[in-house]
Nucleic acid binder design. Sequence first.
DNA 1: TGGTCACCGAGTGGAATTCAATCATCCTGG
DNA 2: CCAGGATGATTGAATTCCACTCGGTGACCA
Lengths: 225, 225
Amino acid sequence: MSLGGLLGEQTGAALQQVRTEPIQQRSAARLSGLLDAAAAVVDEVGFDRITTAMIAERAGASIGTVYRYYPDRVAVLHALHERAVVRFRQRVVDELSASTLASWWDAVDCVVTAFVSLYRSEPGFRIVNFDDRDGAPAADAVADADFFARRLADVLVNEFDLPAGDDLIFRLEVAVEMADALLARAFHTDPVGDERFIAECRLVLRNYLDGFYSPQATNLLTTAS
Amino acid sequence: MSLGGLLGEQTGAALQQVRTEPIQQRSAARLSGLLDAAAAVVDEVGFDRITTAMIAERAGASIGTVYRYYPDRVAVLHALHERAVVRFRQRVVDELSASTLASWWDAVDCVVTAFVSLYRSEPGFRIVNFDDRDGAPAADAVADADFFARRLADVLVNEFDLPAGDDLIFRLEVAVEMADALLARAFHTDPVGDERFIAECRLVLRNYLDGFYSPQATNLLTTAS
DNA sequence: TGGTCACCGAGTGGAATTCAATCATCCTGG
DNA sequence: CCAGGATGATTGAATTCCACTCGGTGACCA
């Protein structure tokens, strides 16, 4: 299995996110400690109410330390987001290799399962829905979705012989957006996730991506009443 | 046609949004002027970077005036959001009555068209994706989606004899979430909206909602490879 | 001419961010 | 093996920015 490709490494291409790369190893702990603290605070007050002081206090550090590693408040959120995405990808790989995949949609199911599972257990995981509606570099979430779609496309092509090409990638991009929306909706109110939306998400994905195999299905429907 | 029902009036149920109902008519202009200003600023800096001072200056008013009408910053955003939703509903009704609807999906298409059209022309329309991830009343966007789904369900049931019931409402809720995500994606980078995503959105909606008629389609797919 | 209605904008408070001083760790010559 | 400079890491008071308040002033109406 070439699933390892899912992990990828676009982090290098990302905008400088940490002010100073830690040299001494104690700072590595500080860095992840800050993110852990941020994650905890996110779960407690949401990522709007979060303040740098809260993060610092929770991490047992001082304000200045936060700013040593991150240029500003939202940079911390970006970093947390990034870490959540990385852990998500890792979890997907784990789930995929732990399961016997009878078909491509088992793989898709694994992705959904990984997402749901992290939403339930990983502190602050809701940060994955953090979208910085800001100035120029706005295309952060989109870049993530696109990157993930391409990686997943590779896997599906290699493992299940789905027809490669831009069509597949586009489909997957669309699928990612839909899944994201439905799963976010599932967790919007219910902290454990509304099963109806989760199940419907799986169903929608399967049907939508299956249409890639049999496009006549869509034509059938357009002529029905 | 009972499409007027779409317009509904949940505004009464909304939390007190305006501090003081304007008595003299010059204040009505002020009020919409403030929202116009907010809309313009939203387009310029996004609704995270927006400041009360920007709104006031753009509206040719002073800070105090903003707070005369709205209790706080996010209340302005809520009001702008609300206005966008109202205009959206109005546009949907217009589109619906201006078109000849051969089938229920023509109605759905109209909804998409209205959304896209407003996204292109209405200043600050991206506010429709504003989600107040805050304390208690969090379920604002969800409430909107749910409300709209119910209204649309009524229309579809009355005009096109779709089978009424909770299933239809749930489907429409899911459809709204998906459409929202795909259209937001279409406009995330491209100010005119990426046509691929818009077209795919229409297709996805049609196929998904059509499955409501013929649920055997989903079963067919689960047995295919 | 008094009584509201609207409006203004300096003032207050809290949160974000800076920065100069201090502490900790590493490194190197002796 | 150690002194002590060099550099990384940390601190928190000071500063800046921004949401929000409020006492004062003009505008409209009766």
